[in-house]
């Protein structure tokens, strides 16, 4: 899982903001997709308010915004398959892991700590 001679790095993105309150969530996704296009080894972790991006049935058009969860659904098409959601953050926000907008792997703090340690660069936003 460490970087190798091919120039591929382990880039981890910790997305920890709600989808529409600021531009951070969208910016994080844009960075993830760009990193994937450049063939980097990408891991995306939803933590804290970031898990709110996973709420199903978002009707962002009602506030004249683009639906972020629809864009998240494109992650597999960019071969971003390492997508995690922090179980504790979900629980604290009354969200159920079997009712999320996209398929994610659940993780705990130990797993996030491990992901960070195996990363070359970590972005939190």
């Amino acid at each position: 899982m460490t970087s190798n001679a091919s120039g591929r790095k382990n880039l981890t993105f910790i997305s920890r903001r709600s989808p529409y309150g600021s531009g951070y969530a969208k910016a994080c996704l844009d960075m993830v997709l760009s990193a994937a296009v450049f063939d980097q080894h990408v891991t995306l972790v939803f933590m804290d308010d970031g898990v709110l991006q996973l709420q199903p049935n978002q009707q962002a058009g009602d506030i004249h915004a683009k639906d972020l969860s629809a864009a998240l659904a494109a992650l597999p098409l960019y071969d971003v398959d390492n997508v995690y959601a922090d179980r504790d953050s979900l629980t604290r926000r009354g969200m159920f892991s079997d009712q999320l907008a996209i398929e994610v792997r659940l993780c705990d703090a130990d797993k996030i700590a491990e992901i960070i340690r195996q990363s070359d660069v970590v972005f939190t936003l």
Binding site: L33, A36, V37, K66, D67, A70, A71, A73, L77, D79
Partner: peptide, 9 residues
Amino acid sequence: AHGLSPAMR
């Protein structure tokens, strides 16, 4: 479906 123009991949 996604609100994005797809990159090549």
